[in-house]
C-alpha cells in the first residue's frame, strides 16, 4: 500500500530524510519511531503529497508521490491527522466534518452517515452542535480522527495522535486505531511513544534522518542487543565456567552464583547450555531468559546515529 525507495528530502544543506526505503502492507499498522527532528513529519508530508521529495521514489495506493497528476488522487485516498489537530474552533464539530466531507466530494447522504457513525464511535455525537473551542484536547484529537475518516480513506497517516493526551484519552485513541485496522485500513503512525508503538504497531521503523532499523517490535528487541539466559546455581565452579566458555555461544559473566550467557536464540540454545552445566556437576536453582526492551533498542539506535 505504501512503498518508498531511497526517499530523500533536503532543505538546502540540511538533509531531513535520507534514503528511506520501506514497504507497508495493506491493513498493516506501521509505526515510524524517532526523536523530535528525526524526519517523521517530513516523511508523512511527502507521502501525503504535501511537500516535494528531493530524491528517491514513493508510491501510495499505487499512485506516484511527486507526480503532479497523482497528487490529488493520493490526497483523495488518504486521511491525515497532523501533529496539531488544526480544527476550526469557531465552527461546530458537525460543521468541521461536513466541510472536509465536501472538500473530498463525499456525496451528501454518505457524508451525513459517516459524520454520525464516526462521532458516535468516538463518543462525540452528543457534542456535534457544540463549538470546537469548548472541546478538551482529547475530544479535539478524536474529532481530528473523525475528520480524517470522513471520506472513508484506505490509508491513514497519523502524526503523533496521542501526544499531550491524558492516559485515558490516549487509550481511547489507540483502541480506535486498532478498530480501524480491523476494518482493513492501512495506518501509518508517527510516534515517539515507545509503549504505544509496541502495543499497536505490526511493524516499526526507527528513523533518525535515515532508517536505523525495521521490523516487528519483537524483532527489534532481538536484533539490537540479542538476549541472554540467566542461570542461578547453587554454586559456580571452575568446571562449569570452563564448560560454558567451551560452548562458544556468547559472552559469559558471573555475579555471585548467577551466570549470564549472552545468546542469539535462547529457545534453541538453552538445552545445550543446561546440558553443559549438568555434565560439569552444576545444580540449577532457576533459569530465566532476559531480552533487551524496545526502549533499549531504540535508544541504542538513536544514540549510534548521534555519535556518528
Amino acid at each position: 500500500m505504501i512503498d518508498t525507495e531511497g526517499l530523500t528530502k533536503k532543505f538546502g544543506e540540511l538533509t531531513a530524510v535520507d534514503r528511506l526505503t520501506i514497504h507497508v502492507d495493506e491493513g498493516e499498522i506501521f509505526g515510524l519511531l524517532g526523536p523530535n527532528g528525526a524526519g517523521k513529519t517530513t516523511t508523512v508530508r511527502m507521502l501525503c503529497s504535501l511537500i516535494s521529495k528531493t530524491g528517491g521514489s514513493a508510491r501510495v495506493a499505487g499512485y506516484d508521490v511527486g507526480n503532479q497528476a497523482d497528487s490529488l488522487k493520493i490526497r483523495g485516498l488518504i486521511g491525515f491527522v497532523p501533529d496539531n489537530v488544526g480544527l476550526y474552533e469557531a465552527l461546530t464539530a458537525y460543521d468541521n466534518l461536513d466541510f472536509y466531507g465536501k472538500l473530498h466530494s463525499t456525496p451528501e447522504a454518505r457524508r451525513k452517515e459517516n459524520i454520525e457513525r464516526f462521532l458516535k464511535m468516538l463518543g462525540l455525537w452528543e457534542k456535534k452542535d457544540d463549538d470546537v473551542s469548548t472541546f478538551s484536547k482529547g475530544m479535539k484529537q478524536k474529532l481530528a480522527l473523525a475528520r480524517a475518516l470522513i471520506h472513508d480513506p484506505k490509508v491513514l497517516f497519523l502524526d503523533e495522535p496521542t501526544a499531550n493526551l491524558d492516559p485515558e484519552a490516549a487509550k481511547t485513541v489507540r483502541d480506535f486505531i486498532l478498530e480501524l485496522k480491523g476494518e482493513g485500513r492501512t495506518i501509518f503512525l508517527n510516534t515517539h511513544n515507545l509503549d504505544e508503538a509496541q502495543r499497536i504497531c505490526d511493524r516499526i521503523g526507527i528513523l533518525n534522518t535515515s532508517l536505523r532499523a525495521l521490523g516487528t517490535p519483537e524483532e527489534l528487541e532481538r536484533t539490537v542487543k540479542g538476549r541472554a539466559t540467566v542461570v542461578q546455581l547453587e554454586q559456580v565452579t571452575e568446571p562449569i565456567l570452563d564448560a560454558l566458555h567451551g560452548l562458544s555461544l556468547g559472552e559469559v559473566s558471573v555475579e555471585r552464583n548467577k551466570v549470564t550467557i549472552s545468546l542469539a536464540d535462547p529457545e534453541k540454545q538453552n538445552a545445550t547450555v543446561m546440558d553443559a552445566i549438568f555434565r560439569a556437576g552444576g545444580r540449577v536453582r532457576s533459569v530465566n531468559v532476559v531480552g533487551s526492551t524496545l526502549e533499549e533498542a531504540y535508544l541504542k539506535l538513536v544514540r549510534e546515529k548521534e555519535e556518528k
Binding site: 491525515f80 497532523p82 489537530v85 472536509y100 473530498h104
Partner: peptide, 14 residues
C-alpha cells in the same frame, strides 16, 4: 495561527 492550513492542504484540492 489556528494551524488549520495543514489539514486543509491535505485534501484533494489545488
Amino acid at each position: 495561527v489556528e494551524r488549520t492550513l495543514e489539514p486543509l492542504l491535505a485534501t484533494p484540492t489545488t
